[in-house]
Design a protein around this nucleic acid. Sequence first.
RNA 1: CGGGAUGUGGCGCAGUUUGGCUAGCGCGCUUGCCUUGGGAGCAAGAGGCCGGGGGUUCAAGUCCCUCCAUCCCGACCA
Length: 570
Amino acid sequence: MRATEFFAPTLREMPAEAEVVSHQLLLRAGFIRRTAAGVYTHLPLAQRVLKKIKQIIREEMDRQGGQEILMPIIQPAELWQESGRWDVYGPELFRLKDRHERSFALGPTHEEIVTSLVRGEVNSYKQLPLMLYQIQNKYRDERRPRFGLMRGREFIMKDLYSFDRDEEGLHVSYMKMHEAYNRIFQRCGLIFRPVEADSGAIGGSDTHEFMVLADSGEASVLYCRDTKCDYASNVEKAAQAVREPGEKEDLKPIIEKETPGCRTVEEVTRFLGIPPQKIIKTLLYETEKEVVAALVRGDREINEIKLLNTLGCLRLELAGANTVLRVTGAPVGFAGPVGLKNCKIVADPEVVLIANAVTGANKNDSHLLNVNMQRDYHVQTVSDIRMVQAGEPCPRCGSPLLEAKGIEVGQIFKLGDKYSKVLGANYLDENGRSQPIIMGCYGIGVTRTMAAAIEQNHDNDGIIWPAAIAPFDAVIIPVSTKDEAQVNLAGEIYDSLSAAGFDVLLDDRPERAGVKFKDADLIGYPLRLTVGSRTAAEKKVEVRVRKTGEVTVTAFNDLEKRVRELLALI
RNA sequence: CGGGAUGUGGCGCAGUUUGGCUAGCGCGCUUGCCUUGGGAGCAAGAGGCCGGGGGUUCAAGUCCCUCCAUCCCGACCA
C-alpha cells in the first residue's frame, strides 16, 4: 500500500472529545471516527488490526474444535420472551419494531438464538459435544458509553457456545476455551491474566475473566506475588484467607459510652483512642425481601457482590436514613448488633474474632465497649462479605497479594442448563432419556482488545503495536521524494518485502521527512525503514524499531532476513 | 438515571460577561515558489444556517425559553 493512496487521516492535535489514551490515539492516528455516542466507524488502519486479531481468534477457536457460524443481529422478541430475558435485560437491550409492529432486539449476546438453533437440530448424545462460534457486532445500549472503543454501544465480539452432555463434558470444553484464550492473548502480544470472577445473576458456576493489565483498567485484580502460585481474582470475587484466632483476651463487662457526633469509624477511633480493628462496622442494607445488618471490621469495606450472593437476593442497596432510624432506633452512625431486632444479621468471619469490640449502641451519640459475640449478640450467618485488599495473604498459598488494574477483554462461563432448560434444548442419552444440554459461553471483545493493546503499548509519540496485530509490519520512508535514488530504492524494498509476504506501507507522500517520521511514530508501525541520502547510495537501509528506538543499518540484500528477525523478537 | 461542562470552517480554540455594522486566530486543505533526516518558510486562495426551534430587540454568535447532541464524575454493567 502506498501512503498517497491510503486513507489514514491523522490529526496534529488531540481531539477534545477523547479522554483515555486509546481513544485519543485511535482518533489522532486515523484509525476510527465517531458516528454517534459509543458508535464508531473503523477506518482502514483499524480494520487491518481487527482482521489480524480476528484471524488469531479464528485459528485458536478452530484448533479447539470450534466451528464458525453467523447468527443474525436482529432477533425476534419471542425468543427473548421465552428465555425470560425480554423483561429482565432492561433498557440496555436495543429494541425495535418492524412495519407490522412486531418486536425485535439488536443482539447484545446470542444465547437465545444459538440455543434455539441447537434445540431444533441436536437430538442425540451422538451429536455432542458441539462448539459453535461467530465474530459479529453486538449491541448494548449502555447507560453511559465512554472511553471510545473500551465501552461502546456497538462493538465486535467473538462469542462461542459449547454444548455438552454433562458437567464433565462442560468442564472439558471450558478448559479448552481457557487454553485457547491464553494462546490468543499471548499471540496478540498482550500482558494479561485470567482471573476468577463473580458469576453474577446466574450464580454457582465457574467463570474466569481475562484481564489485560493496564493502569487505565476499570477492574481491580488481586494476584499472588508468588509466581509459582497462579491465584488471581477480580476483587469482586477475591476470597479472604482463613485467619487464625488471635491471642485470647479476657472478656470485659459491656459498657455504654457517650460518643457525641461520632458517626464514622474514623471519628470513633479518634474519640475513644482505639484502633479501627476493634470496631464492628454495622451497615444496614435493604433487599427486595428484608432489611439486613452486615457486620465487618472497622478497617474493612463491605463487598456488596459477596453480600448479595450470601443473601441470595436479587437487589441490594444501602438502607436510607429513615429505614436505619426505624430498625435501629438511632440515626445513621450508631447502629450495632447488640439488641438489634427485626433484622437479619450477617457477619464477616473477622468480626467473630474481635474480643471486646466497640459497636454502635443503637442510640444517638452512644457506642458500646467490650461487646462480644455469643455473650452479647448472635448472628444468623457468618460469611466472607468484605473486600480483600492488596497485601493480605493469598487464600491459596499465604503469600501477599498484589493489586493491578485490568481491562476485561474476555470471559468464559459455565452456563449449565440455564438456557437449555427454559428453551427446551434436550438430547436423548444412551438410555433413551431426555436430558438438558449443558452449555457454556465464551466471549472476547475484539474491538476492546484493540483498544486494550494501545492502553498497554504506547508512549508520548503514539501507539507501539505488538507485531502480531500491527496494521502493517513496517513503513518505508524515502526521506526525499525528489531524490530518484531514494525513491527507486524505496520502491525496490517495497516490492521485495511485499513479495516476501510482509504488510508494508510505502510513505511516498511528498512531505518533509519530519512529518512522515511523526506519523510513523503516531500510527505505531513496529518497524520503520528509512531510505535517505546517508545510506541510499550504498543501497543500505536504516531500520528503526518503534518500541526501543534502536536503529541499525542493513544492506538491501539482507533486509528481508533482518525484518523477519526483528518482527519475531517484538 | 443524578451531578457538572461544552456546542463557532476538517481539527484545536477566541469572541458571549457589557447585544452593534464585514465573525476572528492557529493547525490542516488548495495553488505557486522554495525546502527536504523529526510536524520548515513566503505568497495567494477555498471553506461558517456561530447545534436546532421559538422569543426579546431597530439590531442576536452574544439576552430569554425550549429541544437536541457530545464529553466528564457518579450510580449501573451476561
